[in-house]
């Protein structure tokens, strides 16, 4: 592999992609949400068990899509396990991109930020019959798949 490719597909990115942190379902989930980027076909769902104190007791994700979106989802799950709802709310896009590490073009930043958006929405999407209508906004950015 050339050094060029390592810029994006760094060891730690591929590690998360191939051996993700907490990919699966959360049996004790209290909150969950999913989102997708229809243009890429990336799909991410987070399921969380959140304590009364706002602490993330368990966090799992599921999804399909490109390496960037799925590795990001895994990194974010690992990062936020044990943190609080406030921590997640305060976590900014720039921090997400920084955590991902590899430099991403604007097109691919959208893939990286999909899990970030879904998780921010998930912590306010309780599963206990509350019918809060949470719609995850589509990530902004150029239409990667749009052309002819």
């Amino acid at each position: 592999m050339s050094l060029d490719e390592e810029e994006i597909y760094q060891e730690h990115v591929l590690d998360h992609y191939e051996d993700p942190y907490h990919r699966g379902t959360c049996v004790a989930a209290t909150h969950a949400d999913d989102g997708k980027n229809p243009l890429c076909g990336d799909i991410v769902r987070y399921e969380l068990a959140i304590g009364d104190d706002g602490k993330i007791r368990e966090i799992y994700f599921e999804g399909t899509g490109c390496c960037i979106s799925q590795a990001s989802a895994s990194m974010l799950a690992e990062q936020m396990d044990g943190k609080t709802v406030d921590d997640i709310s305060a976590f900014e896009a720039s921090e997400m991109l920084e955590m991902f590490g590899a430099r991403l073009t604007p097109n691919r930043q959208k893939c990286c930020l999909l899990p970030w958006r879904v998780l921010k929405s998930a912590v306010f999407s309780p599963l206990d019959g509350s019918d809060e209508d949470h719609v995850t906004e589509r990530p902004a950015g150029p239409n990667l798949g749009e052309e002819s």
Binding site: E5, Y9, L39, C66
Partner: peptide, 25 residues
């Protein structure tokens, strides 16, 4: 392997291809 990962790496080899649904969902 997702098409975007294919196109990304292929681009680094100087080869421009398209990845996505090509406006045909």
């Amino acid at each position: 392997i997702h098409a975007h990962d294919v196109a990304q790496v292929v681009d680094r080899h100087g080869v421009a291809v398209r990845a996505g649904h090509h406006c045909t969902q």
